[in-house]
């Protein structure tokens, strides 16, 4: 049975290393990361990040580890958000390989 996905919403400091800190945390702690969306917020040198993750027993641990990152200002679980944005992203990605493999 596939585990359901959920969304984690982050507010992060906007600097070149922030993304490495966050994605590095997922890889080194063997957390699953299904998708990332990130865009700068209008002011204050901050970015908003949405992480699509598996809603399993490790979610609590993921959130707590994210909270410890210096560049992470806020962490919220957003099980109520729909995944439409990520779905669009996945559609985009699904289109890509055919174009790339058209050798």
């Amino acid at each position: 049975m596939r585990e359901a996905n959920t969304i984690i919403e982050l507010t992060v400091k906007n600097h070149p290393g922030a993304m490495s800190h966050i994605t590095g945390l997922f890889s080194r702690r063997a957390f699953n990361l299904e998708g990332i969306l990130c865009a700068p917020l209008p002011k204050g040198g901050r970015s908003r990040m949405y992480l699509l993750v598996r809603a399993n027993g490790r979610l609590e641990q993921i959130v707590r580890q994210l909270e410890k990152l210096y560049d992470v200002i806020e962490v919220h679980e957003r099980p109520d958000y729909d995944h439409r944005l990520f779905r669009k992203l996945h559609e985009l990605i699904k289109m890509k390989p055919e174009a790339a493999n058209g050798r």
């Binding site: 800190h21 990152l69 210096y70």
Partner: peptide
């Protein structure tokens, strides 16, 4: 150095 020290520091600065 910054990239290599991310996973082994509490925090790091360039």
């Amino acid at each position: 150095t910054y990239g290599m020290s991310i996973p082994i520091t509490k925090h790091n600065f360039l």
